[in-house]
Amino acid sequence: MDIFLQQVINGLSLGSIYALIALGYTMVYGIIKLINFAHGEIYMIGAYIGFFAITALGIGFFPALIISMVGCAILGMVIEKIAYKPLRNSSRIAALITAIGVSLFLQYTGVFFFKAEPKVFPKILSDGRMNIFGTKAYISYQQLTIFVVTILLMLLLQYIVHFTKTGKAMRAVAYDKDAATLMGINTNNTISMTFAIGSALAGAAGVMVGVYYSAITPLMGVMPGLKAFVAAVLGGIGIIPGAFTGGMILGLIEAMVSGYGNSLYRDAVAFFILIVILIIKPTGLFGKNEKEKV
């Protein structure tokens, strides 16, 4: 039971990270139907921005988090403008390959500048932990921070999407880009904004992972990026609460596999779930079925 509780806590922390990355994936997919493979790399850059902000400027966790989010938001918009915007009307495979190209570009630019060796992330949050209701399970302050920050960001995102003009525009463009344009919505700005928000969330995830695992590398974004996409698909791609739930579920399952089974299979589980969900219900837990119109 104690192990179980401990794995639930670990799973929710890991799931929070997946959820934050998955949100960006799902928002971008929802609006331009592109699997933004470079999203995992934005998360990696976010971790490095956090790292340099803390080591060079000597600032604390929250200022570093904000700087990283802003930096990633800008990076996301730039990538969209340079690489994806010109391809908006070309084939899906062209867009997908471009995304893979951008992803490789960021990875190896990272290797070039930051070197392939892991950097040790400064210990910026207390190492303390608290006991849960007298059991042998513990929650560390880092985990608590990750969890709370994720929930706050999720609430903020829900507020933006549902109660602001930008959010309304985003939903309109996701639903029907042409109609939205005809209704006077600036589609380009709205898409830019979507990339900015999604990337900022990934940036936040990057800094928190740095704090949590205390080591960062230029290739750290590949696996979490892919898995976050799995989480987005699990919840129903394009659906914001779906991405959140999918991320949490994936985190929990991985923690359970590590805790009770063989941690080497942890990575395979995510992809196995992916294939099962795609076969049983490709639209995900929260998705609706649609059939091509003839």
């Binding site: 391809l87 070309s90 062209a94 867009a95 390959i97 471009t98 190209g101 951008v102 570009f105």
Partner: peptide, 8 residues
């Protein structure tokens, strides 16, 4: 990667 994106 630059070549890849440029081709696309």
């Amino acid at each position: 990667s630059v070549v890849l994106v440029a081709i696309m």
